[in-house]
C-alpha cells in the first residue's frame, strides 16, 4: 500500500467517523483539523485499526501530530 493510499484511507475514516470534509494532507494537524478530544481521538485510533487491520500500540498516539505521522505509524504497524 502506498503512502497516498494510506492517506486516502485516513481521509475515509475522518469523513465517515468524524465528519471531517476537508483535505487530508501530510501536514494536516490532526488535533486541530479533526477537533480531537479524548473520545474523538479514540474513535480515530479504533477506526484506523479497523480500516487498515492493524493494531496501534500504547504510546503510538504520543508522537502523532500530523497526518504524515499517522501514515508512518500505520505503515510501521502493517509490517
Amino acid at each position: 500500500m502506498t503512502d497516498a493510499e494510506i492517506r486516502a484511507g485516513i481521509a475515509h475514516v475522518a469523513r465517515t467517523h468524524l465528519g471531517f470534509e476537508g483535505d487530508v494532507q501530510d501536514d494536516t494537524q490532526l488535533v486541530e483539523a479533526l477537533r480531537l478530544d479524548s473520545l474523538r481521538l479514540l474513535t480515530l485510533v479504533a477506526e484506523v485499526e479497523n480500516h487498515f487491520s492493524v493494531m496501534l500500540e500504547d504510546g503510538d498516539e504520543a508522537g502523532i501530530e500530523r497526518v504524515g505521522d499517522l501514515v508512518a505509524v500505520i505503515r510501521r504497524r502493517m509490517g
Partner: peptide, 8 residues
C-alpha cells in the same frame, strides 16, 4: 467480527 482490535 467487525472490530479489529477487540482489546479496546
Amino acid at each position: 467480527a467487525r472490530y479489529h482490535n477487540v482489546g479496546r
